[in-house]
Design a protein around this nucleic acid. Structure first.
Lengths: 245, 245
DNA sequence: CGACATTTTGAAGTGCTTCAAGAGATGTGG
DNA sequence: CCACATCTCTTGAAGCACTTCAAAATGTCG
């Protein structure tokens, strides 16, 4: 028998070079050599149980996180208790970028299911991205993509009607599941109607009614959180037609 | 007489080290030495006439811009013609970050008045920020701040009522004018009611009515685009009270 | 000054919310 | 494994905030 180093699951070192999420995550577009250097950067993995916080608004910002397994929501709370969900994050996506601006997190990140993240200490990331051009470039793209995504949400919240918003949401989920090798048509939503509603600027009843309407129209088959899209073109048509035009 | 190099206004070289907007712009928080190095980076200034585009969605991304004078709006257009204004930008603010993600701009930037920007070639920015730690750090903060700002807009669009949105908008403008050394209470809006409405997810008539309501309630004195805030606490109170609570 | 864009205000319409009740799913402890 | 409590989702009916349509007032610019 060979000597083995004791390993605890909780502190298992992450290794980008061995990770099957490379295509979706920070390493995307980097050379093999560059990805090897990422392994110096990424710290331990951390498990987060369903409904638990990865970080909270007000927490000191020290690291960003790559989602290794599971999914999260991020939200902002108003003093009077109103919640705005600002995003849903899936495997390979980077979470925590809001903290860079003030060195404190400005939103909450909550696991929608038992999940696991790779911890990327931010000071180390800045240091390494001064040396590794591909890392720098990729990190900037990740941040910019977040800005572009946010603009899309603003469009949705500011200019679309309820059913358009839900159609856009479903198409977006479908596309992200596809990118992860899952079915584009059939998937399981991890969030409640209320969370979808908060994200879309609607009440949960409105979300539920829109789902029912889509079902009546033969666009999707809905069974609670299980969604089967029957007509992707049908959903897309909803987006491109002005309702009162 | 000394020999002088001919200088055209249009291509006048920008110099961060001499600029009075340092406190608001990219150089904020950088050391004097670091700011001197920024002068290598920042290219020519560019003048943009009122209503003209700084860039358009689909344009190749080559540079980000620091607003030297004037102001801009950014917007996204839907295929059916609907417009969503995603932000209003003032002096010292950085515009164009959306382009990093795909190497093409994803929104339009339009001058609200005759304006001037400093052109910051992006390739050079990445290069220099690998050498100048303060620049790297500051640039990341600028991007993160944009993400945090966008989350605020989502909260506004998704969870607030018309008058709350307008109050939040006015307080935000007031705070930004203050940071620029102008009055917190009295300022001139450069955008139309329709543009404010698009930004806030409201129709222009609703914006106009909310202004009238604020005027009736003695919170602001409105004369077209000229705004005088009579009670900043009064506007703040509108934000923190749940309407149906 | 005259043409045009912008803003204000009123009145009617509508899409989403609120309130309410019941059905269905999920989890826990005995 | 079932019973019970809890959470989630659906659906109906009434209410209301914002939109739409319309017209007049005001401001802006060539």
């Amino acid at each position: 028998m060979k000597a083995t180093v004791p390993v605890s699951m909780a502190s298992l070192k992450a290794a980008c070079s061995q990770c099957n999420l490379q295509e979706l995550c920070l390493p995307f577009g980097m050379s093999e050599n560059e990805i090897d250097r990422l392994d110096e950067l990424v710290g331990a993995r951390r498990k987060i149980k369903r409904q638990h916080h990865l970080y909270r608004a007000g927490d000191l910002f020290e690291a960003i996180y790559a989602i290794r397994a599971g999914s999260f929501k991020t939200d902002v709370l108003l003093e009077d208790g109103r919640e705005q969900v600002t995003g849903f994050q899936m495997t390979g996506e980077i979470i925590g970028l809001d903290g860079i601006s003030t060195e404190f997190h400005t939103c909450n990140a909550i696991a929608l299911e038992d999940s696991e993240v790779c911890v990327i200490p931010y000071a180390k990331l800045e240091e390494l991205s001064r040396e590794v051009e591909g890392l720098q470039h990729q990190f900037h793209k990740v941040m910019s993509r977040e800005i572009v995504r946010d603009h899309g949400v603003m469009m949705l919240l500011g200019s679309m009607r309820a059913e358009e918003r839900l159609a856009a949401f479903l198409l977006n989920m479908s596309q992200r599941f596809t990118a992860r090798g899952f079915s584009a048509a059939e998937f399981h939503l991890r969030m409640t109607r209320e969370e979808i509603g908060s994200y879309l600027g609607l009440k949960l009843e409105t979300v539920s009614r829109a789902f029912s309407r889509f079902q009546e129209d033969g666009l999707v088959a809905v069974q609670q959180k299980h969604i089967r899209i029957l007509s992707i073109p049908g959903l897309k048509k909803l987006l491109h037609h002005q309702p009162a035009g």
